[in-house]
C-alpha cells in the first residue's frame, strides 16, 4: 500500500472575481522511505500539493489518502492528530519561534498534541532530552543549543527546522522550498542533510523545489506544470 495517494485531485480557489485552478486532476503515489522531489516553476501548484499532504488544505475534488485514510473524511481534531503523529514540516522561511532557544524549538513539537498513540508520550524526561540532543548533534548544532534563532545564520536556522520536523519521529517530512532562502552551498548541505536523515531514520521526505540541481539527489521526482503532473518517475541510481 502506498504511503500517500493523490487520486484525481483538483484544487480551485477564488482570486477576486476569477477562479484559479491550482491543481487539475493530479494523481501520483509516494512509497514509504522515498526521498521525493516535487519540482516545477513558480505557481505550478507545488506548495498546494504539499499543503494537501500536510492536511492544512483540502481538495476541491478527488481524494488525498495518507496511510490508507481518506483525509476528506476526517474531522479537524482527527486531522490535527494525524498531522502531529505522522507529519513534520520544514518551511521556506524556517518559522522558528523567536523567543525559544534551539533546544526548546526542537522540543516544542513534543509538548504539543493530546494523542495517546504518540510514541514519545511514554518517554521519560531523560529519554526526551537524549533524543533532542541526538537530533541537535545530527544537524551539527551542538554548540548552538542554547542560542535563540536570531543568533543563527539562515543555514543553521534551517538545520534547526529539520531537527524540529523530526522530533516526533514522523513518517513523513514535508519541506516547502527549504533551500529558497539559502545560498547554493548551504542549500546543497541542507539537501544532503535531509538525505542523510532519510537514509538513517527511514523517514519519507517530500520537498518542493524549482532548482534542477536538487533533482539529482531525489529517488522519486514528480514534475508539475500548470497544476498537472508533467512527469512522475523514480531515479534508482540517485538513491543507490
Amino acid at each position: 500500500m502506498p504511503l500517500i495517494e493523490f487520486q484525481q485531485v483538483h484544487k480551485n480557489y477564488p482570486l477576486g472575481k476569477t477562479i484559479v485552478h491550482a491543481l487539475q486532476g493530479i494523481s501520483f503515489d509516494v512509497q514509504e522511505g522515498d526521498f521525493v522531489t516535487i519540482s516545477g516553476p513558480s505557481g505550478s501548484g507545488k506548495s498546494t500539493i504539499l499543503n494537501m499532504i500536510g492536511c492544512i488544505d483540502t481538495a476541491s475534488e478527488g481524494e488525498v489518502v495518507i496511510q490508507g485514510t481518506k483525509t476528506s473524511s476526517l474531522t479537524d481534531k482527527e486531522i490535527t492528530e494525524l498531522r502531529h503523529r505522522t507529519l513534520g514540516f520544514i518551511f521556506q522561511n524556517f518559522n522558528l519561534i523567536p523567543v525559544l532557544s534551539v533546544y526548546e524549538n526542537i522540543e516544542f513539537p513534543l509538548l504539543l498534541g493530546d494523542g495517546k498513540d504518540d510514541p514519545y508520550k511514554s518517554w521519560s524526561d531523560s529519554e526526551k532530552k537524549d533524543w533532542i540532543n541526538y537530533l541537535i548533534k545530527q544537524v551539527g548544532l551542538e554548540d548552538y543549543a542554547q542560542r535563540r534563532p536570531s543568533a543563527l545564520s539562515g543555514g543553521q536556522r534551517q538545520r534547526v527546522a529539520i531537527a524540529r520536523a523530526l522530533a516526533t519521529k514522523p513518517t513523513i517530512v514535508l519541506a516547502d522550498e527549504p533551500t529558497a532562502n539559502l545560498d547554493s552551498v548551504t542549500g546543497e548541505q541542507i539537501i544532503q542533510l535531509m538525505r542523510e536523515m532519510n537514509q538513517n531514520l527511514g523517514t519519507t521526505f517530500i520537498f518542493s523545489t524549482h532548482d534542477p540541481e536538487v533533482l539529482k539527489v531525489a529517488d522519486h521526482v514528480v514534475k508539475i506544470r500548470d497544476g498537472m503532473v508533467e512527469d512522475d518517475y523514480r531515479v534508482v541510481e540517485a538513491g543507490a
Binding site: 492544512i56 518559522n95 498534541g113
Partner: peptide, 12 residues
C-alpha cells in the same frame, strides 16, 4: 507562530 503550532499538531 499559531500557524506553525497548528501545523505541528496543536489543537485549536
Amino acid at each position: 507562530e499559531i500557524g506553525n503550532m497548528r501545523a505541528m499538531g496543536a489543537q485549536a
